[in-house]
Amino acid sequence: MAVDKSGLVFKPMDQFVVKPLFGGDHVGLFTVTNVTFWMALAVVAVVAMMVLGTRRRAIVPSRGQSVAELAYGFIYKMVEDVAGKDAVKFFPYVMTLFMFIVMANFLGLLPMSFTTTSQFAVTVVLALMVFVTVTVVGFVKNGTAFLGLFWVTSAPLALRPVLAIIELISYFVRPVSHSIRLAGNLMAGHAVVKVFAGFAAIAAVSPISVVAITAMLGLETLVAFIQAYVFTILTCVYLKDALHPSH
């Protein structure tokens, strides 16, 4: 971005650049990049938490095992409560989404790290996966009755075509908002932290800047969890629409 006369350097977007990990400029399909690295770390974190944490299978759980059980119970209850009892077979799928997003978000909070969930490439694929799954499940489970989702029978007949168009648009906007919400939140938070970090170059305001970065990181920790939670619960809400399309 801009370099003004005072020497302030704002490069809030540089942290989102995809770079090959082992030199070179070209990013091909199979190039090992920082995306690969941080996604692999997310996998390691998930394995450490869910597999290594529970390896003793204790009746009285250790700390690590309680965390894993807490995550399990949290998502299981969410799927059951929001999407209904028959959605439990999608539980591993929802759990996969939640664990990946929450781990990627938290890993992104580390200094110098790369936040994979701030990339539209990642969130769009995640959201499209949910969208396609929900649509396919909806049609397989309910057949054409799934289209009743767009035909609001509780509304007056004259209004129904209009409502159908609105419902149809809102249905197709879902993956857009679903993906942009996640990436946008993460990107905004990280960019703001970087902007505050830029102000730290001025000696007079650097203490305020450091305090502000600390506060922002606290907020970002909250956002990292809440966005993973929101992404997951919206997945459950969409699944409920697919399984029980009546309003």
Partner: peptide, 11 residues
């Protein structure tokens, strides 16, 4: 969910 929808538009 409500907060997420409201915030999405800001995003």
């Amino acid at each position: 969910i409500g907060i997420a929808f409201a915030e999405a538009l800001g995003i």
